[in-house]
């Protein structure tokens, strides 16, 4: 089972490098691919971040708020991660 999971995970990871090797993609496609990271990040964060505690949505909202505010103020990624964990731990102790 683990090997099967490994295989189906590796195939989409390596296929583009084989398929598109040495080819010049059309400018529009190149533009779309440049956009992919930011569109993916948006989709990876929402809605999942809200539902980290399925029975307490405030928990996720609070975590998201802390992360966004910390990142907006210019905090390093590590600080954003540890800060969100710290605030949510505090929140659980207080509730």
């Amino acid at each position: 089972m683990i090997i099967g999971m490994g295989l189906v995970t590796y195939i989409p990871r390596m296929l583009p490098f084989v398929l598109f090797k040495g080819k010049e993609l059309p400018p529009f496609i190149q533009g779309v691919l440049k956009n992919v990271p930011y569109a993916t990040l948006g989709a990876l964060i929402f809605p999942a971040i809200i539902f980290i505690q399925k029975d307490d949505l405030l928990y996720g909202v609070l975590g998201a708020a802390v992360a966004f505010i910390a990142a907006f103020l210019g905090a390093n990624v590590i600080v954003v991660v540890l800060g969100s964990i710290a605030v949510l731990t505090l929140y659980s102790y207080l509730m």
Partner: peptide
């Protein structure tokens, strides 16, 4: 409680990567 709050780590990291851009 710490185990639970660690669930936010991944998402917080994505936020930390996205917001500066």
């Amino acid at each position: 409680t710490l185990q639970e709050s660690m669930g936010v780590a991944l998402y917080a990291m994505f936020v930390g990567l996205l917001v500066p851009s």
